[in-house]
Nucleic acid binder design. Structure first.
Length: 878
RNA sequence: GGGCGCUUAGCUCAGCUGGAAGAGCAUCUCGUUUACACCGAGAGGGUCGGGAGUUCGAACCUCUCAGCGCCCACCA
């Protein structure tokens, strides 16, 4: 017996536990059926579930469950990411509370501490994913720093290195002075700010009374200046090229060079060149062989190459300006809109900084990654993201993969006594190589840098399946079927996976990539902890159940658009689950079980043939929606069917059958109702796995668990099966509408007459009880010879005229108004039809079916107009 | 500067190949009918951002203007 109230808390967790215990999330490797696989975008191991995960993982679970029901061999590969910078920062923050830094602990102890933290808070997000209903194969859970994946990382690294695709170089990189590490271009966020532009001048060497005027936003970097550039095409300044000027304060002589980087239109036309601290200047410096002077310490304070060693850039800036003023070289300071680079994790200003770093030759790897998408081996959905992808791949820069952090994959690089590099998968091999190289045993020093987190996640699609071993899982599930993720990590992750997979596996990591938007707050603002507008999915689940949250995500997911969270909508989907629950209770109360001796496809009753056809139609639409990644369409189709068709009409329409005496009709209807309810549970299961399972299990006789039930195969629909009941529904609605317009209480049982053609009269005869019941009529009969009187109110439905005698209660003035309004609408429509049909080119050029339909509408409207006019005439004088 | 997207009912949004404008919420009016008040019945509400074009026909295609948003690059 079902409880009277739908309470998801009663069963959601138990159901999940059962699925997991039964091993239902594991693919059956003995079978030889089609494979379907998804690798989860690994969440940060120490993270907690947010609404973005709820969306991402709901969509994946829907696909996974759908494909499982299609009978495929399904793997949803779960796991977590070590999230280098993020995790290290969390632990460092903890240490800070104890008044410690990571340096106080030392590398080894610090890493131990991070592992401890991972152990302590690592399981949270996976438990939360379970609560959401995610049917991942947890027995295969992986971690980017577990033994297997670490081995994959080392192997890929060595391979790339030996192929010359990883190299070490001293280059300008984005330096995060807080974390004291290099970061990649993608980890830098440009922010608009109003800064200052400083105009000042450098005296010329050969004539200190003459000056070259320059403009800069960062005067303190002048100590790193090794030239001033002007354009060769600058008529005002070109004559200075080849001369020298004197860098004030430090009185260093630097050349004035000719370079097109200096735009005559911008600033003063002369640019100070600081090759070690500006990406453009770095290029200029290379072109002119300029020295590169590093003026910063790793924490972005100025170093001993400047007069202001130890000061921050801001402090040094103040001093520099003051000194320049003192020397009479400062000219003016103006407000200047500019963009400043910030570290997306640390939030501090990023400095271009000269260091030794390791790079992946991304431009080379991008070639195959780009081709695979161009050749549709991997398809973006929606496909517009293809452009974004190509755009980036076409302009890709070398990928800086070294991080001066402690938490992460330490690079498999060892240095010999003379800094000779040995790149091998493990220390022994490296040692052996080194010993052989030097002809004696040598001490090796391991590279201390770790790898960018995205290096290991880039291998995720194959490393989690067992690579480098050629496992059954790898053979079966690679390439994976689809990757589901947000647009924000297309470059970080999708592109890197493409590059790494094409390089290692020579095949795409996934055949499709479904990109969804962001989950925003109710007002459409981005959710962030700092704004305090985040909503915890666990609280939502607590309040409304996981099914409601899931359904919200699915029903809101339309391609290429962000989702605004809406509590009222989530509540609405909880109500939807309640509605379904109650419909199931109705079926239970009326013993709607599958009847062994009755084949629902042979149903006789119109009402049953109708719902069977509608159910089939719904199934086909949902299937089509899921096949095309149209989650909202699929979800809304089931919703409309369950509520608008099954509950609002079918259940109401079959009540008279159950309350009647016709045993044959009751048996048939029980079987059909049970069948359709089952159909609902099956089709709805991927979206709302819990409530559907609870209802499915309510029937003791199940031979298969819902999660493993077969997705229905498409059957043909006979349009005739729908006609009668569709007509009856229109008819009932017309009467209800009339009753409401007439203010007739529901209790008032009315007699109704109908003037209709033979066909419609037959339907009325067949469906008389049903119509009377739902329209609350005492009787419904053909008008025949009954005279039409002034106190009969009238409405039309399709071609039929409905007349209801209301002795003495008709407000004629109001009735005239109502009829007049109907007449006005009809006239307006008729004008439209006439305009179209009198248009010669419409009649000639539009498809015949469209023209015929227009004609039919015109005829119907004309007939109805006559009827309304009649009714008006009847009461004209009252 | 380059690219992408959005503008449809009071609100949040559907509307796939062009063929009479839809949903949920909100609003109004009825209603304790034996699945459900987390409910039922009915109703109101839109010149689909403006303009032009293509077409027999445009929310949908093209151009243009306006507003909003995102991504990438750059600004000494």
């Amino acid at each position: 017996m079902l409880d009277k109230i739908y309470n998801p808390k009663d069963f959601e967790e138990n159901i999940y536990a059962k699925w997991e215990n039964e091993g239902y999330f594991k693919p059956d490797m003995r079978q030889d059926n089609e494979a379907f696989s998804i690798v989860i975008p690994p969440p940060n191991v120490t993270g907690v579930l947010h609404m973005g995960h709820a969306l991402d993982d709901t969509l994946q679970d829907i696909l996974v469950r759908y494909n499982r029901m299609l009978g495929k061999k399904v793997l949803w590969q779960p796991g977590t990411d070590h999230a280098g910078i993020a995790t290290q920062m969390v632990v460092e923050r903890q240490l800070a509370k104890e008044g410690l830094t990571r340096h106080d602990l030392g590398r080894e102890k610090f890493i131990e501490r991070v592992w401890e933290w991972k152990k302590q808070s690592g399981g949270t997000i996976c438990r939360q994913l379970r609560r959401l209903g995610a049917s991942c194969d947890w027995s295969r859970e992986r971690f980017t720093m577990d033994e297997g994946l670490s081995r994959a990382v080392r192997k890929v690294f060595v391979s790339l290195y030996k192929d010359g695709l990883i190299y070490k170089a001293k280059k300008l990189v984005n330096w995060d002075p807080k974390l004291e590490t290099a970061v990649s271009d993608l980890e830098v966020i440009q922010k608009e700010t109003v800064g200052k532009m400083y105009y000042y001048k450098y005296p010329l060497e050969d004539n200190p009374n003459e000056y070259i005027h320059i403009a800069t936003t960062r005067p303190e970097t002048m100590f790193g200046d090794t030239a001033v550039a002007v354009s060769k095409d600058n008529p005002r300044l070109a004559h200075l090229i080849g001369k020298n000027c004197i860098l004030p304060i430090v009185n260093r002589v630097i050349p004035i060079v000719g370079d097109d980087h200096a735009d005559p239109e911008k600033g003063t036309g002369a640019v100070k060149i600081t090759p070690a601290h500006d990406f453009n200047d770095f290029e200029v410096g290379k072109r002119h062989n300029l020295p590169m002077i590093n003026i910063l310490n790793p924490d972005a304070t100025l170093n001993e190459n400047t007069p202001y060693a130890g000061l921050t850039t801001q402090e040094a800036r103040v001093k520099t300006i003051a000194k320049l003023e003192e020397l009479g070289l400062m000219e003016k300071i103006e407000d200047h809109p500019m963009v400043i680079p910030y570290g997306d994790r640390s939030g501090v200003v990023i400095e271009p900084y000269m260091t030794d770093q390791w790079f992946v030759d991304a431009p080379k790897l991008a070639v195959e990654a780009r081709r695979a998408v161009a050749d549709k081996e991997m398809q973006f959905i929606p496909d517009t993201y293809e452009k974004t992808y190509f755009e980036w791949m076409n302009n890709i820069q070398p990928w800086c993969i070294s991080r001066q952090l402690w938490w992460g994959h330490q690079m498999p690089i060892w240095y010999g006594p003379d800094n000779e590099i040995f790149c091998e998968e493990d220390e022994e091999t490296a040692q052996a190589c080194a010993d052989k190289h030097y002809g004696k045993h040598v001490e090796l020093r391991r590279e201390t840098d770790v790898l960018d987190t995205w290096f290991s996640s880039g291998l995720w699609a194959f490393s989690t399946l067992g690579w480098p071993e050629n496992t059954d899982y790898l053979k079966t599930f690679y390439p994976t079927s689809v990757l589901v993720t947000g647009f924000d990590i297309i470059f970080f992750w999708v592109a890197r996976m493409m590059m790494m997979s094409m390089y290692i596996m020579k095949r795409v990591p996934f055949k499709k990539c479904y990109i969804h938007g962001l989950v925003r707050d109710e007002q459409g603002r981005k959710m962030s902890k700092s704004k305090g507008n985040t909503v915890d999915p666990m609280e939502t689940i607590e309040k409304y159940g996981a099914d409601a949250l899931r359904f919200f995500m699915a029903a809101s997911e339309t391609q290429g658009r962000d989702i605004n969270l809406s509590d009222s909508r989530i509540q609405g989907y909880r109500n939807f689950a309640t509605k379904l629950w109650n419909a199931a209770r109705f079926c239970e109360m009326n013993q709607c079980y599958a009847q062994n001796d009755f084949d629902v496809h042979k149903a006789q009753l119109e009402i049953n043939r109708w719902i069977m056809a509608k159910a089939e139609e719904m199934t086909q639409e949902v299937t089509c929606g899921l096949n095309n990644y149209r989650f909202a369409e699929a979800a809304n189709t089931v919703y409309q069917f369950v509520w608008g068709t099954f509950c609002d009409w079918y259940i109401e329409l079959i009540k008279p059958i159950f309350y009647g005496q016709d045993q044959k009709a009751i048996t048939e209807t029980r079987a059909v109702a049970a069948f359709v309810l089952d159909r609902i549970l099956i089709v709805l299961h991927p979206f709302m796995p819990f409530v559907t399972t609870a209802l499915w299990d309510n029937l003791q006789t199940r031979t298969v668990d819902l999660i493993n039930a077969s997705w229905p195969k498409t059957e043909s629909i006979n349009p005739n099966d729908k006609k009668q009941i569709d007509w009856a529904i229109d008819f009932i609605s017309s009467i209800r509408s009339l009753r409401s317009a007439m203010n007739l209480p529901a209790g008032a049982k009315l007699k109704a007459f109908v003037k209709a053609d033979q066909n419609d009269r037959e339907i009325i005869a067949c469906q008389n009880t049903l119509i009377c019941n739902l329209a609350r009529l005492e009787s419904l009969q053909p008008l025949g010879d009954t005279p039409i009187t002034k106190d009969m109110v009238q409405t039309v439905c399709r071609n039929a005229t409905i007349l209801i005698p209301l002795k003495g209660v008709v407000d004629f003035a109001a009735e005239r108004q109502r009829l007049q309004k109907e007449l006005d609408t009809l006239n307006k429509n008729l004008e439209g039809y006439a305009r179209k049909l009198s248009n010669q080119s419409f009649v000639e050029r539009a498809p015949a079916a469209v023209v015929a339909e227009e004609k039919r509408r015109q005829n119907e409207a004309m007939e109805n107009k006559a009827k309304v006019e009649e009714a008006l005439a009847r009461i004209a004088n009252f």
